[in-house]
């Protein structure tokens, strides 16, 4: 399989914004979006298989009592 070397350097966001016809204001907004830290979403364990099994056990126990 041949490998192709891209001849141009990676364009800057400004260059690409210009190519795509994006306004400087929108580019600025996107920079702001990208620089604002976004917290990682922790996956809720309650949806996991183990949690479901455990919930079912608890539910059975409650019924017995």
């Amino acid at each position: 399989m041949a490998v192709y070397t891209i001849t141009n350097p990676v364009p800057t966001p400004e260059e690409m914004a210009e190519i795509l016809g994006m306004s400087p204001e929108r580019l600025q907004t996107l920079r702001k979006i990208m620089s604002t830290p976004v917290p990682y979403k922790k996956r809720s364990r309650s949806r996991g298989k183990t949690a479901r099994k455990s919930a079912a056990k608890t539910s059975r126990r409650v019924k017995k009592s």
């Binding site: 990676v10 364009p11 800057t12 966001p13 690409m16 914004a17 795509l20 994006m22 929108r26 580019l27 907004t29 996107l30 920079r31 979006i33 990208m34």
Partner: peptide
Amino acid sequence: NAGSQSLLAAAIFRDLTVLSLIQSQQLI
């Protein structure tokens, strides 16, 4: 921003392209 749930809107496509480059610039 785009008022769209779909990523396939043309405006979001442009945003994704430029966001990728902003991130790329940070990596460089």
